[in-house]
Design a protein around this nucleic acid. Structure first.
Length: 712
DNA sequence: CTAGGGTTAG
């Protein structure tokens, strides 16, 4: 079959799409310059103009191609020399007549793609070819078809005109199937297959791989499997190409066993799988949450000498995002750059999502600048992720800059979430007038305040000790028919820790309206009622009634309030209750070498309460003759959650330890850890119990655990 | 090279 084709035009039979990407992007060879240099290009331009300016512009295509400009020239198949266009000699061999024939056939295909899909219209256009129709002309035109409605008419015309051999019939049907793939018409492709069988034309592996890939591209991977299973019944034995398509199809359906068994077979038979097949496998493991398996495939791929593509790297990064393994992203990106693979929009946006989610602000802003530098437009979602990160880590100036960039981007405008995030930034920093100003702008832009915005404003006014404005916001919430949620209530509780005693009543009234159960608990606390045993029960019921995600923030707020009301024993009871209900887990741990206290994700009040409990437990251990391990440590985390308190948990903990004269020191190599050796701890604990000094919970509870609730 | 290859983030 191949010998029939004019090899000098083998490249012409392909559009750009069907070229391997490495080829079309490489500077050593350009199809475009090959086709459209000098004479060819001028001719093409003239033809385009002629058709464009034709007075009967209702059917310019038909007019432009109605006559074969090269009737006497040989058909494409007749010139029989092999030309490698990447070699300089190629350009001498191109002839004027073959170029114009190419252009003529191209324009014929174009008009076929846009004509009325009837046998009559199709044959009218194809009559321009006269009787001068070769198999290769048919192949060329069919290959250019993108319209799956017209393509079968074109096919039937050629079958009728050429009366080809059985093998050639298969070829022509296969090429026509590609038009269905291009227009994502899988049902049509199946119908064409039926027609093929009815005419007694034998399908081959190319038929099946085209069908399988069509099914995949139409998001019908199950259809791909179905056709793969049908293949033997048509007397075909699948080859490397079919297996390759099927590895991807099985991967797409998350059928790990089948995908991997075909993959193993490919390796055993030494079939070359390309980067995209590997990418499918990498993605399969990634979406199933098995990033390590993704990485294994990636390593195998490199070991087999297959060069990872941008898609491969993007897929890996996607897996990292899903698995929340932000710390590995930088290395993958580095490897990509070292490998000479150019990052694209998806690379950057995935990196940005990873970094923003991990609150790695330097990384996120770095990617942001890189994208801007490359002239890439960020989506609303990406801007919002940046803004949300700013709110979490406390970047004020950067947040304002991102917001302004967004407004002047010309491609997207801030939405409700964008406003909400920046209002949060202002509120957390007590920037009342800025927050109010932005709220106005938000409303003027047509967005209603959301519960998130109102929560932030409560926070903002609470910080500014403007109790009446807090109440005003609560009224607004009620007027907007928004149901107060637990984070909102937590925010009110948090405001209470900053409100002068004489004004507490105003906030409590809001809480009672927002959540009756919580209101009664708060009354209990504030009015310093004696615990008649119902208190613990009531709080248990409250904590059990709320959603799992907000149990800890609520418990944190309640403990903070106890501390603020100078009720350390109640704070302890609540911490104990939190442990019983498994709201707090593994606060203390003991290994042979080290005993530790883990304070991450606790509010300041809860953390200091837990610290005091731990110190007491250490004293008890000593008193009962237990031996201490070589090292004792407190882990506060190096939290970037700036708003958990003004100073951050680490520094509050540090100053509290200093007040207790506890000889802990910040670990130089482990951020967020305060350590003490056995001997130092021992002498301090012994001295402490001898003086019976009971540490005051004399520390400040301020800032907002609310934000940890909203975004934590 | 021959009529067969796409894939990637929320």
């Amino acid at each position: 079959m191949a010998s029939h084709f004019c090899i000098s035009h083998s490249f012409l039979f392909h559009n750009h799409q069907s070229f391997p990407s490495s080829f079309s992007s490489s500077s050593s060879f350009s199809l475009h310059s090959f086709l459209f240099s000098n004479v060819t290009y001028e001719r093409f331009t003239l033809l385009s103009k002629a058709s464009f300016h034709h007075p009967n512009n209702h059917a310019p295509h038909q007019e432009a191609v109605s006559r074969d400009p090269d009737t006497n020239s040989s058909s494409l198949s007749k010139s029989r020399f092999w030309v490698n266009p990447s070699r300089p000699r190629a350009k001498h061999i191109r002839t004027k007549s073959s170029s114009s024939r190419y252009i003529y056939l191209t324009r014929l295909a174009e008009s076929l793609n846009s004509c009325t899909p009837t046998a009559q219209h199709v044959s009218t256009i194809l009559k321009g070819l006269r009787d001068n129709v070769s198999e290769s002309d048919a192949v060329f035109i069919l290959d250019k078809m993108v319209n799956s409605v017209t393509a079968p008419f074109v096919l039937r015309y050629f079958l009728d005109k050429i009366k080809p051999s059985g093998d050639t019939e298969t070829v022509l049907f296969n090429i026509t199937l590609k038009a269905f793939r291009k227009s994502r018409d899988f049902e049509g492709a199946e119908k064409l297959f039926d027609e093929m069988i009815q005419r007694g034309v034998k399908p081959d592996n190319i038929t099946f791989s085209t069908l399988i890939n069509s099914a995949r591209m139409c998001s019908l991977p199950n259809k791909a499997v179905e056709w793969f299973e049908k293949l033997p019944s048509f007397g075909c034995e699948p080859d490397a190409m079919v297996y390759s398509a099927m590895v991807s199809a099985y991967a797409q359906t998350n059928n790990v066993n089948m995908a991997l068994s075909l993959y193993d077979r490919a390796k055993a038979e030494r079939w070359t799988l390309d980067a995209s097949t590997f990418s499918s496998l990498i993605k399969m493991h990634g979406v199933l949450g098995n990033y390590d398996d993704s990485l294994k495939i990636f390593q195998e791929m490199k070991a087999l000498g297959v060069k990872p593509s941008v898609v491969t790297y993007n897929t890996l990064l996607g897996g990292l995002f899903r698995a929340r393994r932000s710390w590995q992203a930088k290395n993958i990106y580095k490897e990509m750059v070292t490998d000479g693979v150019l990052p694209d929009f998806i690379t950057y946006s995935t990196l940005l999502r990873i970094y923003a989610a991990a609150q790695y602000s330097d990384g996120a802003f770095g990617v942001y600048e890189e994208m801007k530098g490359q002239g890439m437009d960020l989506s609303v979602d990406l801007y919002n992720r940046l803004l949300a990160m700013c709110a979490n880590v406390g970047c004020i100036d950067e947040a304002v800059e991102v917001f302004e960039d967004m407004k002047s981007s010309g491609t997207c405008q801030p939405n409700s979430l964008s406003f909400s995030s920046l209002i949060t930034v202002y509120s957390c920093n007590g920037m009342v007038s800025e927050a109010e100003g932005l709220l106005n702008e938000m409303v003027q832009s047509g967005f209603q305040p959301t519960i998130y915005v109102l929560t932030s404003l409560v926070q903002c006014y609470g910080k500014a000790k403007r109790t009446d404005d807090v109440v005003k916001i609560f009224k607004q919430l009620v007027d907007l028919d928004i149901v107060p949620d637990v984070p909102f209530c937590c925010c009110l509780l948090n405001v209470m820790t900053q409100t002068p005693k004489e004004e507490l009543g105003k906030i409590i009234e809001c809480i009672e309206k927002a959540n009756k159960q919580l209101g009664s608990v708060i009354r209990y606390l504030v009015e310093e009622k004696e615990d008649d045993g119902n208190f613990r029960k009531e709080i248990s019921e409250l904590l059990n009634s709320v959603d799992g995600k907000v149990k800890k923030p609520l418990c944190n707020c309640l403990i903070d309030l106890c501390v603020r009301l100078n009720e350390p024993n109640r704070a302890r009871d609540l911490l104990d209750l939190g442990l019983t209900l498994e709201i707090y887990k593994n606060l203390q741990s003991r290994s042979q070498n080290q005993w530790s206290l883990h304070l991450k994700k606790l509010s300041v009040g809860a953390a200091m309460t837990a610290l005091n409990v731990w110190i007491n437990d250490l004293s008890k251990a000593l008193e009962s003759g237990e031996d201490l391990p070589p090292l004792l440590g407190v882990n506060t985390g190096y939290g970037k959650h700036k708003y958990v308190s003004d100073k951050g948990l680490a520094s509050v903990c540090e100053s509290h330890l200093r007040e207790l004269n506890a000889p802990f020191h910040e670990a130089p190599d482990k951020a967020g850890w305060f350590l003490v050796t056995k001997d130092a701890a021992k002498s301090w604990l012994e001295y402490r119990s001898s003086t019976e000094s009971i540490a005051d919970l004399n520390f400040q509870v301020s800032g907002g655990s609310t934000l940890a609730v909203q975004y934590g």
